[in-house]
């Protein structure tokens, strides 16, 4: 780029990798070690017998925890805090859940189609009482497809930075500033892939519309749940979750 020096891009790369390492919530080594810890049949049954309200609240809490780490990732990432606060909020509102969905592939075991949830690995059937089988299956399919790319931790770091810093989000006030950061992150990502001979994954990355569609489906399901249980959502759901999704 005529506007960014190699040193600037290298500095941004190191900064994103460090921010990610500090905020990845669960260490990859621990997630790998726990891969054989799957919920027993009895445990799955006990989750399936929970009320829809309880299961929704649990999942809302787990999503909120994951999002708090994404907010922290954004804050530590070079350039993000230099954006105006309107744009920080626009980018997080639109992108935090998308980043959580990408991060989920680290906690996903493609071999038996399970994901790490509340201490053990769970298949899609554990989430039955949510009443969102189609959405859950779509999320599992998405994680499965991402796993086939065999992302390294560094690749996830830069890819999720790019999911977040997206200048095409509506309502940005300083679009040019976001665009410049996005361009530098794209350079950083491509430079890293070139160095590691991994440029072939560029053509296999999920289209932006796929993540957007999963997030939209999640918000639609929340809307239906809220119509059925407005008081539960109002009284017990985490405030950050409500702020982002309702």
């Amino acid at each position: 780029s005529p506007n960014s020096s190699v040193t600037e891009i290298e500095h941004l790369t190191q900064n994103v990798l460090k921010s990610y390492r500090e905020t990845c919530q669960l260490r990859l080594e621990d997630l790998q070690l726990l891969r054989l810890e799957t919920f027993s049949w009895e445990e799955v049954r006990s989750y399936q017998k929970k009320s829809m309200e309880e299961m929704w609240e649990r999942c809302a809490c787990r999503i909120t925890e994951a999002i708090q780490y994404v907010v922290e990732f954004a804050k530590r990432m070079g350039g993000f805090m230099e954006l105006c606060q309107n744009d920080q909020i626009v980018l997080l509102k639109a992108g935090a859940m998308e980043v959580v969905l990408v991060r989920m592939c680290r906690a996903f075991n493609s071999e038996n189609r399970t994901v790490f949830f509340e201490g053990k690995y769970a298949g899609p059937e554990l989430f039955k009482s949510l009443g969102c089988n189609e959405l859950i299956n779509s999320i599992f399919d998405f994680a499965h497809s991402l796993c086939s790319l065999h992302f390294s931790e560094n690749e996830i770091a830069l890819f999720t930075a790019l999911v977040l810093i997206n200048s095409s989000r509506p309502w940005l006030q300083e679009k040019d500033k976001v665009e410049r950061l996005q361009n530098n992150l794209e350079l950083a990502f491509k430079h890293m892939l070139r160095k590691t001979h991994r440029e072939s994954i560029l053509a296999k990355l999920p289209p932006k519309g796929k993540l957007r569609s999963l997030c939209y489906q999640h918000m639609e399901k929340l809307r239906s749940f809220r119509q059925m249980y407005p008081i539960i959502v109002h009284a017990v759901f985490p405030p950050l979750y409500k702020e982002l999704f309702s």
Partner: peptide
């Protein structure tokens, strides 16, 4: 701003 009170708060707090 009021609509995004929690996000504002999280963004304004220092790194934790």
């Amino acid at each position: 701003q009021e609509k995004h009170r929690i996000l504002h708060k999280l963004l304004q707090n220092g790194n934790s």
